[in-house]
Design a protein around this nucleic acid. Structure first.
Lengths: 350, 350
DNA sequence: CGATTTTATTGGAACGTTCCAATTCAGAAA
DNA sequence: TTTCTGAATTGGAACGTTCCAATAAAATCG
């Protein structure tokens, strides 16, 4: 008959020891599984702990040995399914290794990010995976080096910070999808969405430019439009580009969300996406698959990135002296309908 | 010139005290802001802490006073955007109150859930908001009462557990959307998706039945099909129902994800959703808005539920003696295209 | 059987903080 | 000056755990 402590569930190792008729050291041995303790004693202690409703006090334990087996996962935008999937990958690997991930969402606020990371440090997190908020500056991360906390930056590269990094192959991916449009015969191609200050935008736009230049296409600065990386932003950017005298025949968008906004704008202007104009995105979120026409985009496997990030962080935790390491995740083209390749194939066949 | 400790970032309150030429007690006073300390002394101590790169050790502090200001948020399925939004609501309120939420994802695994909650207890979480994994049994939560930890169950009601609860108005919502279909003239209406054992399914199906009975519609058991609450599950269930000799003219789906799967299946069978057949969902996830045709569904404001859950939990933390409390969040009908109401209105006008 | 190794168990000293009671300090009142 | 007061500071004892060295008990050996 279990009889847990009444109100303040404050059962300690010593009470267990008394109740079981052993010393607190023995109980500790059972708890950590380190020393040699007679099986029957172990069982008895275990049973007593169960009976009294014992809760391990990790704070007290950490006081002696700083091994806390928790890892912080700081996300800049949980409402974006991309990051949710990334988190799932991270958790999967950490769990295997007996770690537990404590996540927190910063909602792109640097202040919140600072707060959350401090909390995690205070609780003795062994390492932190950070998807940095927009205005994060590299010096915000200096404490990690000083404190010897393993820190890994993911998804958004942070120029100037020398930590391990896990990011998708933005440049190559953008280059690939742009080349696809070029191969379909497009001449005037626009790049839409994202703000100039975002590193990810710089990388993707860089890939776009590289492909355009390699194919000898002229680059019209009027066809490079910034916007917030939201549906509304994409809508606005597309509207702007469609009001131009010399419209593009294809657009590469900063990400899927923006692309979907752009599709809405095109439809509003009476254009049939995939026939009158080609639109492509980036990320391959689940929305891309279900929007109509289905969006041609670049897949980057967020779960895989998460797994890789976790693995790298664990490596770093176990060997603090190791050099920072980088992983650039593959990005491959996913051809659907919005680029018109399908119609074109049909026409060729028919 | 900041000169943080070299490798093992282990600066303690005592080192700060020594460096600042005061006693550790004074430093503690500065840290907690409790006693009276001369402003200049405070400044000096603060500066020293900054200079040496001090990190507060919450574990050690909690050893004396169990106020940890962290709250655990246990989610059963982070990949579902509904829960991500719920989490955002929770965080918003907790942040205001100076608490920080540590989230963890159980991916519907009771084992993982147990693990994660134990971790949170061990770290001295003041309370836990739990969106229970599928096979959670009420006795899994007994520890909370014993330990005096505030615990709140959200989204999925857990019959038999007497904790505070925050759930959406599933029954009423399902009833509402069913009545909408009935008003549009549908006779044979199916209910698709979700497993019989899910409480949420029971509630929603209950609402469906209530509306059907109230309208005097006959209920055909063949039109009640279970499936996993996934896109594929919805696809399968819809395929099954379409292979029936006597097809329904409308279907109510367990949730949006299932409904989208069902839409795909209908399209595959050559039906135009919204014209040949009506399909409605539940949750109003962002996908519902962007799928084509846009999905008629029931909106339940996950962010609002999250806020409410956090508020209730805080109340309980501050007054542990308080009785468990329940909040049933409103669910309102969102009419879009998939139910055919729009076409019907057009026809009437034209 | 005693000597030796191996296996189990144990007290006490940390760990970094807060709290309490005690002390010192500065200024005001006598 | 001395006395008093309240503000500012301080040493030491917890808190619940792990580690270490030491001891006790059991097993092995000659």
């Amino acid at each position: 008959m279990p009889q847990p402590q009444g109100s303040k569930g404050k059962v300690t190792i010593i009470e267990i020891a008394d109740a079981a008729g052993v010393s607190k050291s023995t109980v500790s041995l059972v708890l950590t599984g380190r020393g040699a303790v007679k099986p029957e004693t172990r069982q008895h202690v275990l049973k007593t702990m169960d009976r009294l409703g014992y809760v391990y006090n990790r704070g007290a334990a950490n006081l002696r040995n700083a091994q806390s087996r928790i890892v912080g996962l700081v996300l800049n935008d949980l409402s974006n399914p991309f990051f949710a999937e990334f988190a799932i990958g991270v958790e999967k690997v950490l769990q295997m290794a007996g770690y537990v991930a404590f996540m927190a969402n910063t909602a792109e606020s640097v202040v919140r990010q600072e707060q959350v990371m401090r909390m995690m440090r205070e609780h003795g997190a062994g390492g932190i995976i950070l998807c940095p908020a927009l205005d994060t500056r590299p010096e915000h991360l200096d404490w990690a080096k000083a404190a010897g906390t393993a820190l890994l930056v993911a998804i958004r590269r942070l120029p100037g910070a020398d930590t391990s990094v896990v990011v998708p192959e933005n440049l190559v991916g953008a280059s690939r999808v742009t080349r696809h449009l070029i191969n379909l015969g497009h001449e005037r191609i626009a790049f839409l969405g994202g703000m100039h200050s975002m590193v990810v935008r710089q990388e993707r736009h860089g890939g776009f430019l590289a492909a355009m230049e390699a194919a000898g296409r002229t680059i019209d600065p009027a066809l490079n439009i910034e916007s917030m990386p939201t549906r509304d932003g994409g809508f606005g950017a597309m509207s702007a580009v469609l009001s131009l005298a010399d419209r593009p025949t294809a657009v590469v968008c900063y990400n899927d969300v923006t692309a979907i906004g752009a599709m809405l704008a095109a439809a509003r202007h009476g254009l049939v996406v995939g026939r009158d104009i080609a639109i492509v995105g980036f990320d391959d979120t689940s929305e891309a698959r279900h929007v109509s026409p289905a969006l041609t985009t670049v897949a980057v496997d967020p779960v895989g990135l998460g797994e890789r990030a976790a693995a790298l962080l664990l490596k770093q935790i176990n060997d603090p002296a190791a050099e920072p390491e980088s992983f650039i995740g593959p990005a491959h083209l996913v051809i659907r309908e919005s680029c018109g390749a399908y119609q074109r194939a049909l026409a060729a066949a028919g």
